[in-house]
């Protein structure tokens, strides 16, 4: 999946992407990094076709029906229980399924009968990630999937996302958290000022910035531009 020479200007005339080029690895979890407001979510909107995709710039991305897109900060229905919410997704995905509460991950089994609106922010995020992970699509887009999660739950989510990738699913996510980027199964893309400023593995990122800490590497890259 590649983006080639993509330029986009917002309706208020601010230029968001300036001849942007990016390459996404199919067999790695692609992570879009970058400061707030650089257009990470908007790029996911283009990839997902929520915003019309320019065919000459976007190559190799699946069609709309083959994409699952978890949107940042959008809740499920407050009146539905956790089980009913996931069951609804399962019914859409696989009619005549025999999905039971026992099929929920351990962390969600405890709150299976709790209404979504009564969950904490982190628990809601887990429900959303779990639901989207159950959709059978070629490409999964996650917008800050670890947002609002404690370190242990964030790890659970990233493991689930890695599992999807190992099952052959393509993944692109945005993130501001680094504690779980601990191996080279990730492909980092640092977006700033309309261009990808770094693209490569976490170890290459650390090597380039001469540090062993991803946070420091991030800050250095941000300041370098």
């Amino acid at each position: 999946m590649e983006i080639k020479d993509f330029t986009y200007t917002l309706p208020d005339k601010r230029q968001l992407y300036d001849h942007l080029n990016a390459h996404f690895e199919d067999d790695k979890v692609n992570i879009l990094l970058g400061p707030n407001g650089v257009g990470k979510t908007t790029l996911l909107d283009f990839i997902s076709t929520v915003k019309p995709r320019d065919l000459s710039s976007f190559e190799g991305f699946p069609a709309f029906k083959q994409i699952a897109y978890q949107i940042q900060g959008v809740p499920f229905i407050y009146e539905a229980t956790v089980y009913n919410t996931i069951k609804m997704v399962m019914d859409i995905q696989t009619p005549n399924n025999r999905f039971t509460k026992a099929d929920l991950p351990d962390v969600l089994q405890k709150v299976a009968d709790v209404k979504y609106g009564k969950l904490s922010g982190g628990q809601r995020q887990l429900v959303i990630i779990d639901a989207f992970s159950r959709l059978n699509r070629q490409l999964y887009l996650f917008d800050e999937p670890e947002s609002g999660l404690d370190p242990r739950m964030a790890q659970v989510v990233m493991q689930r996302i890695q599992q999807l990738n190992s099952e052959g699913k393509k993944i692109i996510l945005t993130s501001h958290q680094f504690q779980n980027i601990n191996n080279d199964h990730y492909h980092l893309l640092f977006l700033k000022d309309g261009k990808i400023r770094f693209e490569g593995s976490p170890s290459e990122f650390l090597k380039r910035e001469g540090t062993s800490d991803l946070v420091q590497a991030y800050i250095k890259t941000d300041e370098d531009q």
Partner: peptide
């Protein structure tokens, strides 16, 4: 306007 449509369209596909 609250992005529910976007989310449910990606779940349902249509």
């Amino acid at each position: 306007e609250n992005n529910f449509l976007k989310m449910f369209t990606f779940i349902s596909g249509d």
